[in-house]
Amino acid sequence: MDVAIALLVGAFMTLGIFLMLSRSVIRMLLGLALLGNGINLLIFVSGRLSREAPPIVPPGAYVPEGAIANPLPQALILTAIVIGFAMFAYLLILGMRAYQSLDADHTDTMRLAEPEDGPRPPLSY
């Protein structure tokens, strides 16, 4: 089952990267979401997998006994999920604004700051 979850991580990463390399803003967005899932899972498996042992101290005990899931990657991923959500929301709205203001949902046509045939940035000494 290690292989299977490793392949899942690989698939998420592959498709995430593939979509992010696209020029369409929406595809990039979807790619970002997939990439986020892949990375979260990667962090998750780096803490090793354990079944039916959530990192919760059982009632009456002070310290969890026996094998227990690694809480550290979980805490990291929880933060990552929140930040990923914020990032996604921000990019989505930015994409919307770009479509409205620049009439472009394609990165090659977003050329307001650096027009294709515009002069190069100032290079004088």
């Binding site: 991580v9 998420f12 990463m13 592959t14 990267i17 593939f18 990667l42 498996v45 997998l49």
Partner: peptide, 18 residues
Amino acid sequence: LAIVAGLGTAALSFAVMT
């Protein structure tokens, strides 16, 4: 490129888990 990166990540996670 994406497939190579994905395979790499898969190998990495597999290596870590084992």
